[in-house]
Design a protein around this nucleic acid. Sequence first.
DNA 1: TGAAATTTGACAGATATTTCACAAAAGACT
DNA 2: AGTCTTTTGTGAAATATCTGTCAAATTTCA
Lengths: 214, 214
Amino acid sequence: MLSKDEEKKISSAVIKRLPRYYRYLGELLENDIERISSKELSVRMDVTASQIRQDLNNFGGFGQQGYGYNVEYLYNEISKILGLEKTYNIIIVGAGNLGQALANYIDFEKSGFVVKGLFDVNPKIVGISVRGLEIQDIDNMEMYVKNKHIDIAVLTLPKQKAPKIANDLAEWGIKGIWNFAPTDLQLKDKSVTIENVHLSESLMTLSYRIKDRV
Amino acid sequence: MLSKDEEKKISSAVIKRLPRYYRYLGELLENDIERISSKELSVRMDVTASQIRQDLNNFGGFGQQGYGYNVEYLYNEISKILGLEKTYNIIIVGAGNLGQALANYIDFEKSGFVVKGLFDVNPKIVGISVRGLEIQDIDNMEMYVKNKHIDIAVLTLPKQKAPKIANDLAEWGIKGIWNFAPTDLQLKDKSVTIENVHLSESLMTLSYRIKDRV
DNA sequence: TGAAATTTGACAGATATTTCACAAAAGACT
DNA sequence: AGTCTTTTGTGAAATATCTGTCAAATTTCA
Ligand SMILES: NC(=O)c1ccc[n+]([C@@H]2O[C@H](COP(=O)([O-])OP(=O)(O)OC[C@H]3O[C@@H](n4cnc5c(N)ncnc54)[C@H](O)[C@@H]3O)[C@@H](O)[C@H]2O)c1
Ligand SMILES: NC(=O)c1ccc[n+]([C@@H]2O[C@H](COP(=O)([O-])OP(=O)(O)OC[C@H]3O[C@@H](n4cnc5c(N)ncnc54)[C@H](O)[C@@H]3O)[C@@H](O)[C@H]2O)c1
């Protein structure tokens, strides 16, 4: 058996596709579909059957020849692979437009991401309640993160403030940062995982692809 | 010269990197940095210099041997490539949490994306003003899109409603759809460009990458 | 039960993407 | 002006990713 460090490295292309499989399987499950072949799933998802089988085989043989994949079993396996069987405690840093929108989104909880706190510097909004959570002053954040086992911080604050806050959070033991500020965070502490969401960049690729320009 | 259809196809990997170059160049510009070599940019961006040169060369030789790239010139060229020298008229469909957050985000305008209208079915919020724009009833949308030269629609409504609305919008002449609903839109009309933003999937890849699971 | 149909997992071949390496052009310096 | 240094653009090599194919396992159907 391969030791932890020798385990086959899963390519990030594969990882990025897993949540999509998970979503489609969830829909199949809702529709009481018990099994599915890579062929049929490939039609629904508009990818090749070969890719589906190859992707899944990175993690083990979940299917059965002549039968296909059991939807519920595969759904649960992917859930485990993605780490969704755990619960993650989340805080949102920057309780402005985007921070509040994310805080109000209940579907994250279905996947195990539970918003435990909201923080902001603006005294005008500190104390306001968002989905049952009072926005707290940023000065409380250190104690809060250290005491409440916060796993993930969502950064929805101005890009100038993001690097400092990210570093602090890393020091206080956070595991992951979901960053919406338009900057690429780089931490000394490489044990902290960063996922950048650059919405403006997504919109720009859309504008690139709009043919016969406006 | 190659005709339109024969033009070298730019890979989507390259396209997705362009906005990032654009962002870094914008920052250099703000710092009055006049020129930059691929080598130095590669250090700042943490990619290889070779990749930068290769990417840019898909669109033309913007640099000069022994000198590097002129920041302002390159910034403007990438702006043109991305189609940002134009103004895009945008509407937001579904003026809930996320729709309002996006409507309030002024930075989109700096890149030429101007929010012209907000639409919703909920009579309780129709009429409410968001950044100077009244939320309109969805029934007004057809006339509005047809008369006001709307280029892009942002879909921030429930996933069940998204496919129908997307089809309508396509029929009414929209060019692009920026979809936040957790579903993959597929339109008959292939001339409409769709950019999906699946935030939950982004969060799931973060959870995958968090080592020493919680 | 046995033959036909289905479908996976694996691997090899085909594409795509990234990196390397270097000639040639231009700048910098004396 | 001439030499040395920098740095691009490019083609080729190295990687990475995706697709096609098929034996083997299993199901389906008569
Ligand atoms: N809203 C969008 O649609 C959108 C789109 C793309 C990117 N973003 C990015 O997301 C981030 C948030 O955007 P927004 O629209 O919600 O902005 P916003 O101004 O509505 O909210 C930002 C919040 O951060 C708070 N803040 C400022 N400094 C802070 C600090 N040091 N600690 C804690 N909180 C602090 C502010 O008080 C404010 O409440 C920004 O970086 C923005 O560029 C937003
Ligand atoms: N808020 C988030 O953080 C977040 C994260 C990931 C995905 N999303 C997705 O983005 C979409 C919007 O999320 P939200 O949090 O803003 O939800 P929301 O419920 O706050 O807003 C949705 C809005 O759409 C309106 N609506 C419903 N049917 C409509 C129709 N047929 N035409 C026009 N408007 C209609 C509703 O009245 C509501 O105002 C959803 O699909 C959601 O799954 C949101």
